[in-house]
């Protein structure tokens, strides 16, 4: 089974995230880039499926600036076989719609049965790319998976819901997005890190991938950030001093907030 894992380099999970003033896109210069945490689960799941099946390749696909190659290298260190990096200045500022367009085109250059993604990125947090990819490629959509079972050309997942899970089944090709409950991602080993350097990495411009320049980037995006503001600082809490009437005051407070 050939599997593609889509990964994204995002600003460090714990770093303060900023939008740049000039074009209102995420500022990726000032902070350290890391692999989107949920994508680590996607890579792990792809490796497990490949290891269980015993054949096929795991290809890492990413779209992002030159620096995103660090994230590719991490996925290769974990054990993926090869990588495709779509890098082009014209892609800067692409929203989910434009990104899914470019990724779908890039997918067209790779042979795959399964595409696995993390359920969302920690910077944009849209959670729609998997569904959009399914729509654009015509592959089955198996999202929010907390468990994936592959048997021949059938893929069965447990789809996480608010109250439990649904069992969803489809034939390949399929697009799967995974939640963090699904596994425990491995740590890159020293041998994995050494081997990663020798693995094939294909770099594609949008022209190579057959993407129309007008359909990506800020101009090609369907959405636009009109304005933004920092979240207001937390208001100081109200301190209730207990002078024998603490209980009553608490009840009063809860009632005023319509909580009781």
């Amino acid at each position: 089974m050939n599997i593609v894992v889509c990964v994204k380099q995002v600003p460090d999970t714990w770093a303060e995230k900023r939008l740049s003033d000039s074009d209102k896109t995420v500022d990726r210069e000032g902070v350290e880039g890391v692999m989107n945490e949920l994508d680590e689960y996607a890579v792990e799941e792809a490796l497990r499926i490949k290891e269980a099946g015993g054949d096929g390749t795991v290809t890492v696909l990413t779209m992002g600036p030159d620096k995103a190659v660090e994230t590719i290298r991490k996925a290769l260190s974990m054990g993926a076989d090869q990588a495709v990096h779509v890098v082009d200045d014209a892609l800067h500022g692409s929203d989910a719609l434009a990104t899914s367009n470019a990724l779908a085109k890039a997918l067209g250059t790779i042979e795959y049965d399964l595409v696995i993604l993390g359920v969302e990125s920690t910077d944009a947090r849209m959670s729609v790319i998997p569904a959009m990819l399914a729509e654009r490629t015509g592959a089955a959509q198996l999202t929010f998976a907390r468990k994936v079972e592959v048997s021949g050309t059938t893929v069965k997942i447990e789809r996480q819901t608010d109250t439990g899970y649904d069992v969803v089944e489809a034939s390949t090709p399929a697009i799967v997005s995974v939640v963090e409950k699904i596994n425990e991602p491995r740590y890159p080993s020293f041998k994995g890190i050494m081997a990663a350097k020798k693995k094939p990495l294909t770099t594609l411009t949008i022209a190579d991938a057959g993407v129309d320049g007008g359909s990506v980037g800020l101009a090609g995006s369907g959405t636009e950030v009109a304005e933004f503001a920092a979240r207001p600082p937390k208001q100081a809490g109200q301190i209730v001093k207990d002078e024998g009437d603490g209980g009553a005051k608490l009840a009063e407070f809860l009632a005023s907030q319509k909580l009781v």
Binding site: S77, Y187, P188, S189, I193, K197
Partner: peptide
Amino acid sequence: PDALDFADSVRDL
């Protein structure tokens, strides 16, 4: 750089 990448991995572990 490989040794430093590996140290990052061990640090995470």
